[in-house]
Design a protein around this nucleic acid. Sequence first.
DNA 1: GCTAAATTTGAGCAATCACTCAAACGTGAC
DNA 2: GTCACGTTTGAGTGATTGCTCAAATTTAGC
Lengths: 200, 200
Amino acid sequence: MTRARPYDREAALDAAMTLFWAKGYHATSLKDLESALNMKPGSIYAAFSSKESLFRAALEKYFTTMNTTMSTELNGAESALGALADYIRIMGRTAADDPHRSACMLIKTLLGVTSADGIIADDARQYLDQMLAAFEAQFERSKNLGELPADTDCHRLARRYQASISALKIEMHRGTKPNELAALADDMASEFEALRVKPN
Amino acid sequence: MTRARPYDREAALDAAMTLFWAKGYHATSLKDLESALNMKPGSIYAAFSSKESLFRAALEKYFTTMNTTMSTELNGAESALGALADYIRIMGRTAADDPHRSACMLIKTLLGVTSADGIIADDARQYLDQMLAAFEAQFERSKNLGELPADTDCHRLARRYQASISALKIEMHRGTKPNELAALADDMASEFEALRVKPN
DNA sequence: GCTAAATTTGAGCAATCACTCAAACGTGAC
DNA sequence: GTCACGTTTGAGTGATTGCTCAAATTTAGC
C-alpha cells in the first residue's frame, strides 16, 4: 500500500558513522552526508530527523559495534587478565593502512563538541562509562579467578586500563610507526600482566 | 607618522588561543573571534591573514607556553625521574574548576582536523614530537644521573610517558572525579618511579 | 593646517550552512 | 485502472560562513 525505501537504513547509518568518525561532527556537512549515504536531504531528514540525531545514532552504532567486538574477545579467553593484555597487544599491531588506525570515535566526539552541541558530549561520556564498567567487570572476573590479589581495586584498575586504550588509539591516529606502536602496546600490556599473582 | 594599533597583539593571540582551545577550530566562527579579541574582521585579517593562520599562531603560543612551563618544572628538581613523576602527580591534582582542566590543545587539534584543513594537523604533530623529544631528554638526564639502568630505552619510555599525559588530560576533560583522577595520576607516576634503580 | 602613511571600520560579498515542503513518484488494496 | 498512502525529490529557504575593500580615522613630519 506504500512506497518502499530504496535504501538500507543500517547501511546508511554505517556510512554516516564512518564519515562522522573520520571528519568529526562540525566538519561534516549535509552535502557530505548526502553523497556518502546516497540520499537527498529530504530523505535524510525523514529518516533521521536532524544532523544531531543522525550523529547520535551513528555514535550509538559505533559504541554497540565496538562493545560487542570487545566483549567477544574478552569473554573467549580462559584467562581474564590475559585477555585484557592481549586486547591491547593486538590493538598495537593494527596495520598501518587499516581504516581503524584512528582515534576512538567516543574520544574524538568528547573532545570535539561543546555544550552548545546539545547532548552529544553526554552521549559520549555515557558510552565511555559503560566501557569502563565492562573493563571493571573483566578485572573482577580475573580477581575471582585468583589471577589478581583479593584486595585489588578493580575500578581504579579499569580506569587505568581505559586510559591506556585511549592513549594507544591516539597514537594510532598520530601515525606512530608500527614498531614503536607495538612496543608501546607491549609496555602497557605488561603493566597489567605484571599484576598477576605468582604461583608459589 | 602612522596610526597606532589600539590592541595588544599578544593579548589578542591569548584570547584566540583560549577560544580555539575551548571550542576547536571548526566550531569557532569569525564572529566568536571578533567579540573575543574585540576586533573587527578587517583588523583580524590585517593582523593574522586568515582564520587558519590565526589558529596556527594560537597553537604555537599554546605549545610555547606549555613547553616553557614544563621545562621549568622538570629542570628545577634534583631528581630527573622524580620531576617527571611529580609532574604527573601534580597534574592529577588540578582543581575541578580550573580552566586548564581540559584536554591538551595539541591532541584536540590532532583529532579535530583533517587534511582538508591545511597543515594544521602537521603543526600539532610536530609540536607533539618536540614534546616527546623533551621527555626523552629528561629520561636521558635521569639515566646519566644513575637513576635508571644503563640499558634503558629512553625513547620508548618517553613515548609511554607522553601517552600517560595525554590520557590523563583526556580524563580531566571527561570530568573524572578529583579523587579518581588523583589515583590515576598516582598509578601512572608510580609506574615510572618504579624504574628507579634501588641502592644496594 | 596640510599631507602621507598605516590602521580601523563595518557593510556587504559569494559561498555554504542546516533544513523545508510542495510536488512527483512508487506501491499494494480493491 | 484507480485510489490513498508513504516515500523520495531537489530547488529553494533564511541564516551564517570566512573574508574583502573603499572609506573613515589616527598618527607624525613639515
